[in-house]
């Protein structure tokens, strides 16, 4: 059997590679970054919702498993340059900074994931203009390093706002979909801050709270146990507050139907999820159909969410739409199984 190619070493790709190896299939794992683990490792996520376990611990276990398995050939800092349909499977060209290698593979798992939305595109929040307006992945790093301070002056913030749905559910930036995780991650961040610094005021500005399924518990606890404040309505303008130093967040409280203007020390934007550059690239290389949002479209979203409909090509993780880590891991397993069946048939 020719090896099976897994593209992307985030939660879905790691999970697929590890399952393929355990099924006895020779596996090539290709990752464009220089490390394994994907976005959670790249951006140094702190605790993961909803169980508040450290990201490094969760993803680290998967990474170790893959690293320890001799049947998995790992190619870091490598991209796919070319893909042609072979007699069975594909002939692919793997490229690094200074090498280029042609390989025949019997099946491919696309686990190319997502990128965080670039919040500069929503200029009214002042990201990129005010140092104390930060992106939630940057805040994850602060939490991870246990250094929650204002980038402008290094002071511990007294009042922090989270703005949900930045670059999600918004036709003005061309992203009408929900990122599914912004609510949970922001609430988790607020809880984490309140655990470590109970004196910090935490406000979450939301349109709807979508802590779906069992994650609802996190939302309730954030109010009951951690006193996180929720205001329904979006911030529409961030300007320097009078007296200097703070940022004035202006919005409408749409439950009380009145304007709200609160000075904050720091504002955290829950930036949305978009198809990653890699996802767009493989869509074009393999001719995988994409939806209007730019994510890869499975052949049957209900009964077979990991089949692309093209021979020997399988999909897993956030490449097909915003997804939580457990779902990405599950899809990695499913795609591994389908790829293995295809390669062996």
């Amino acid at each position: 059997m020719n090896p099976i190619l897994v593209l992307g070493a985030g939660p879905a790709g790691l999970s697929a590679a590890s399952e393929l190896a355990s099924l006895g299939a020779p596996t090539i794992l290709v990752e464009r970054e220089s490390f394994l683990g994907g976005n959670p490792i790249r951006w140094h996520y702190s605790l993961l919702a909803p169980d508040l376990k450290p990201a490094e611990e969760v993803i680290g276990a998967l990474v170790k498993k893959v690293q320890a398995d001799a049947r998995i050939e790992r190619h870091l800092s490598t991209t796919l340059e070319k893909a042609e349909v072979g007699a069975k499977g594909y002939r692919v060209t793997l490229k690094t900074a200074d090498t280029s290698e042609i390989r025949d593979v019997s099946a491919v798992v696309l686990a190319t994931g997502f990128d965080h939305f670039d919040s500069r595109r929503k200029y009214e929040y002042g990201y990129g203009r005010f140092p104390d307006v930060i992106d939630f992945k940057e805040f994850e790093l602060m939490l991870h390093e246990n250094k929650v301070v204002r980038p402008s002056d290094g002071r511990v913030p007294q009042r922090i706002a989270w703005i949900l749905c930045v670059g999600s559910r918004d036709v003005q930036v061309g992203n009408p979909w929900c990122c599914r995780l912004g609510c949970a991650v922001s609430i988790k961040q607020a809880v984490e801050v309140r655990q470590k610094h109970p004196e910090v005021d935490a406000y979450v500005y939301y349109m709807d709270i979508r802590t779906y399924g069992l994650w609802e518990d996190l939302y309730w606890k954030s109010m009951q146990e951690y006193g996180v404040k929720f205001i329904r309505g979006r911030i529409g303008a961030v300007t320097p507050a009078e007296g200097g130093g703070r940022l004035l967040a202006t919005g409408e409280d749409t439950i009380l139907s009145r304007p709200t203007e609160v000075p904050f020390d720091m504002i955290v934007l829950a930036s949305g999820m978009e198809p990653s550059a890699g996802t767009k690239q493989v869509a074009a290389l393999f001719g995988v159909p994409v939806g209007p949002e730019g994510f890869l479209t499975p052949q049957l979203t209900d009964l077979n969410p990991v089949d692309s409909g093209l021979p020997g090509l399988f999909l897993a993780g956030a490449a097909t739409g915003p997804k939580a880590i457990p779902d990405a891991v599950t899809e990695g397993m499913g795609a591994a199984l389908r790829a293995f069946q295809y390669a062996r048939s």
């Binding site: 670039d118 500069r120 990129g128 930036v173 061309g174 992203n175």
Partner: peptide, 18 residues
């Protein structure tokens, strides 16, 4: 800042979406 080309891409995508 995004580069101009990135912006073009963004608006092209927005157009396609709309």
């Amino acid at each position: 800042m995004l580069t101009a080309n990135e912006i073009r891409k963004v608006v092209a995508e927005r157009t396609a979406h709309q």
